[in-house]
Amino acid sequence: MIDTVAIDVRGLHKRFGRHEVLKSVDLTVRSGEVVAVMGPSGAGKTTLMRCLNLLEEPDAGTITVHGRTVDCTSPRRTRHRSRVIRDIRTRTAMVFQNYNLFPHLTVLENVIEAPISVRRLPRSYAVEIGDRLLGRLGLTDKRDEYPSRLSGGQLQRVAIARALAMDPEVILFDEPVSALDLELGAEILHIMKNLTARGITMVIVTHEIAFAREVADRVVFMDAGYILEEQHPSVFFSNPATPRARSFLRLVSEGDGSPPELERTN
């Protein structure tokens, strides 16, 4: 069964100064699973995502991605450790809330940069893959534009194309539509929904209840550095187990469905 586990996190701790953001987090994500991470501002959702890609170095715990384990309890900067981290990063792609496209590169260059430099694909092959992805995401006519010419929705589509070009086993989405208006956000969510059919493991920090309900296999609810519950969306949204989740859902579902507070992105 071990080969069907995409991500396995054990006893993850992360503190920023005196503030403990993650207090012993355990999480297992199976291959091909779509997990929605929800919770109030400051719950540690974004930090957890960033730890999964080692953008943050956890203070304790282990992270295993497709069989490659980083033990964060003794964070020595060894050659082996850096190799494992890079290996994990190569297999997991991250889609950021604010896209983080490379402004000095064209859309196509953004997409093919890492496939060439990290996956060591020949340029012509990377371009072929890039063009195919841009076509699929409706960006063919933007291929040679710079990011400054694109709208927010287009930028996030490029970021998704860039992630997919790495042929990742896992994609981490950190509030991918929070910076977009409803219509453009819906477009991105639609694209993400289509991705689930491709068997890519997805972990998504989101406040979009309708989306999580429809797409996620599991909702992970976090608060104050802990995972409080993990449920199938049909259970979580209709009958959450913890009072904290109940009050959170009551707040979020009020009004226009936007989150009660904005998540600290960092």
């Binding site: 890609n53 990063r89 190569t90 950021f96 983080n100 890492a114 790495m166």
Partner: peptide, 18 residues
């Protein structure tokens, strides 16, 4: 340069030098 640029490159497994 915005820290996000480093992070985007890191997150794809690009080396520090690259």
């Amino acid at each position: 340069i915005d820290q996000g640029q480093w992070e985007a490159a890191d997150s794809m497994g690009m080396s520090h030098g690259r």
